[in-house]
Design a protein around this nucleic acid. Sequence first.
DNA 1: ATCTATACCTCGTATTTAGAGGTATTATGC
DNA 2: GCATAATACCTCTAAATACGAGGTATAGAT
Lengths: 114, 114
Amino acid sequence: MARTNPDFMTGVPELLILRLLTEREMYGYELVQAIETATGEAIKVGEGVVYPILHALEKQGCLSARRKPVNGRTRVYYTATAAGKKRLGVLITEWQRITDAVSNLVAGSVHGHA
Amino acid sequence: MARTNPDFMTGVPELLILRLLTEREMYGYELVQAIETATGEAIKVGEGVVYPILHALEKQGCLSARRKPVNGRTRVYYTATAAGKKRLGVLITEWQRITDAVSNLVAGSVHGHA
DNA sequence: ATCTATACCTCGTATTTAGAGGTATTATGC
DNA sequence: GCATAATACCTCTAAATACGAGGTATAGAT
């Protein structure tokens, strides 16, 4: 149901975070803006979404964290581990599978077979 | 649910159902299989997903229903109304916005701007 | 001195997929 | 004739998770 529009967002923040952290080290607050920027404002996620995912992925061993004091503030930098990259691969495969199927159907041919 | 991987499925069943019912009249049990077939086995949704959505969309005026007895069994056929088609349009726009953004990022250019 | 931006965090709510379970009729296999 | 599968409808509970609000604290700008 979805009041006015559904989300199509389940799993997307996790996918984007893993993707970005495969390129380079980043901290939570930075990721919030990086996602906004990298998607051309199309996708925006709040800190309430980012931090829990970061913590969960770290606990799963998909991310490694290191604290780094910068100008009196403390930043926690995250990077994707080998496990994280592997997981990203799984997520991308899954993403392709779903989006290809939906896009096909939406595009036109609703007529069974391939 | 997705104990290891997330789903990327939020809103997808609703989108697919509206899409299929824009083409032709169908009943719940039929939709369950139609989705499986039309997506080439890529996406499967159970009756526990389809029926609640059907009822919700009907209540919202997006679908019209008519009961039709067939061989002693009763089928409830649904079709997309004008409101339903309008809603489908909104969903597709949203779908494009999200998937374009994600696919872009996944594909490669993580480098800010357009 | 005040307000905004940076930087971390948690909690509660709402949404919604998935699966199990329930009823009832028809078709199929033995 | 009898059991099992397929058809066809339905509901409920559990689990996951995005979102927003709220909370702390420091640095920079007005």
